[in-house]
Amino acid sequence: MNIHSEHSRTRSARLSACFRPDRSDPVMSLFLTAGFPTLEDSLDLILGFEQNGADIIELGMPFSDPLADGPTIQFASQTAIRNGVTISWILDLVREVRKHSSIPIVLMGYLNPLLRYGADRMIRDAADAGVDGFILPDLPVGEMPSIRESIREHGMDLIQLVAPNTSAERMREIDRQSSGFVYCVSVTGVTGAREGEEVSKSVDRFIDRVIENVALNPKMIGFGIKNHENAMQVSKRVDGFIVGSALVEQIRATAMADGHANHAENGQPVADSVETKSSGDWKEELFRFVRHLKFGD
């Protein structure tokens, strides 16, 4: 566990509190696609995740062409878009969450819907709704620097990513440009759970390089983490871990088994949505999964 004196660069007080120096357990950040499996579920899921151990919520803003995502998140995004998710709806959801919770919320999504909404307007409205930061995977350091400045001016953080093939020099630059935390993508590739010994070996080498070069921000590791053991192993030497696809897959699987979501083939939603009645038990099962991710019991 890394000890940070103080992350003065972090603008969001909620994010900053999350990485307080005296903390000993790894920070758990959970990704879910807003409006998946249905619009009605998102508030419950976010609050339930918090109650069951989530420290940060990464709220996915769906895009029609998620080119850094594997089949699981592609499917969730398509479903959410068909459910009618828009940026305005997502900001309303955040306002709703804020009535009950002060968990840090980071909006994660591709640039285009944000540009279409209007970057300045988006940043202003997000700050107003209670958003803490942004992760924009297709906005690497160097492009549209005004977006980062505006996010910071509004008291939020733009979390930048480093990848296994990022050079030491660029890692340091990304560290300087990032705030809130640095998102360490542990493998090259799209989002999705991964298998194997080889992965963890190369992850170790990657973490060595991250520790050497990322000094100004907390470090969160993600991509391919699918259970508690994975999470503990990869987050030992950093501040915490991020679970995305494995959780979204769990959401899909539990909701579906409960008759709450549509069947899917090859990550493709079936044409029309068939609403079947659901017992609601799937959420309990899902929250057990979340608890296990964090606490392992």
Partner: peptide
């Protein structure tokens, strides 16, 4: 124009 791609592609 520009380079709006995941970080993994920047070195490439």
């Amino acid at each position: 124009g520009g380079r709006f791609v995941p970080e993994t592609l920047i070195p490439v």
